[in-house]
Amino acid sequence: MGYKPKIGSDFPLEVRVIEANTRHTIEKTRSLIAATVLASSTVALAIVGVASTVSGDYTSLSYIWSVVAMPLGAVMAHYFGKAQTNDKDNHESSDRVA
């Protein structure tokens, strides 16, 4: 006689619950990455800005800005980019004369 394992019933998780938890985890991770990029960029620019103002040489500030501008712009564009996708609706109200 061989060993026969007992198999219980399925977990009461539905696909919707699993998908919602996955979306939540992904959004938390994205938000954490975005906050880290924003905070580290701001701190780096502030420290180098103060040091550049004291020394009078802004070469290091220019270098730091060239490094943080792309990730900072990517985060800002994601969160504050164009919210509406239909350009026709966006321009109709501006074409009307009051």
Rank of each mutant, 00 (worst) to 15 (best):
Phe11His: 06
Ala34Glu: 08
Ala69Phe: 11
Arg30Val: 04
Ser52Gly: 13
Ile64Leu: 13
Ile26Asn: 10
Leu38Val: 07
Ser31His: 07
Glu92Tyr: 06
Gly8Tyr: 11
Ser62Thr: 13
Asp95Gln: 15
Phe11Ala: 12
Ser66Leu: 13
Ile47Thr: 08
Asp10Gly: 05
Gly81Asp: 10
Asp89Ala: 13
Val48Thr: 09
Ser93Ile: 04
Phe80Tyr: 09
Val43Arg: 07
Leu61Asp: 09
Ile18Val: 07
Val37Glu: 03
Val75Ala: 11
Asp57Glu: 14
Glu27Gly: 00
Thr53Asp: 13
Ser66Ala: 15
Thr53Arg: 14
Val97Gly: 01
Ala44Lys: 02
Ile7His: 08
Ala34Met: 04
Arg16Lys: 15
Lys82Ile: 14
Leu32Arg: 09
Leu32Gly: 01
Leu38Phe: 09
Met1Trp: 05
Leu32Pro: 00
Leu45Trp: 05
His91Ser: 14
Pro5Gln: 08
Arg16Leu: 09
Arg23Tyr: 03
Ala35Arg: 03
His24Gly: 03
Ser40Val: 02
Ile47Cys: 01
Gly56Leu: 05
Val68Cys: 04
Asp87Pro: 10
Val68Ala: 04
Asp10Gln: 10
Ala35Met: 04
Ala46Ile: 01
Asn86Glu: 09
Val37Met: 02
Ala77Leu: 11
Gly2Met: 02
Ile7Thr: 10
Gly56Val: 03
Gly73Ser: 08
Val15Cys: 06
Trp65Tyr: 14
Ser93Val: 04
His91Gly: 06
Ala44His: 03
Asn90Pro: 00
Ser66Lys: 14
Val97Phe: 12
His24Asp: 10
Gly56Trp: 03
Ser52Lys: 10
Tyr3Ser: 08
Lys82Glu: 15
Tyr79Cys: 05
Thr53Ala: 15
Ser94Gln: 15
Ile64Lys: 14
Asp89Arg: 10
Gly81Phe: 04
His78Cys: 08
Ile64Asn: 14
His24Cys: 01
Arg16Gly: 11
Asn21Ile: 03
Ile7Trp: 03
Arg16Ile: 05
Ala35Trp: 05
Pro12Ser: 11
Glu27Ser: 03
Ser52Cys: 07
Ser93Gln: 11
Ser93Trp: 12
Tyr3His: 09
Leu38Pro: 00
Lys28Leu: 10
Ala77Glu: 13
Val48Tyr: 01
Asn21Ser: 08
Ala98Val: 09
Pro12Met: 08
Tyr58His: 11
Ala83Glu: 14
Met76Pro: 00
Tyr58Gln: 06
Gly49Gln: 09
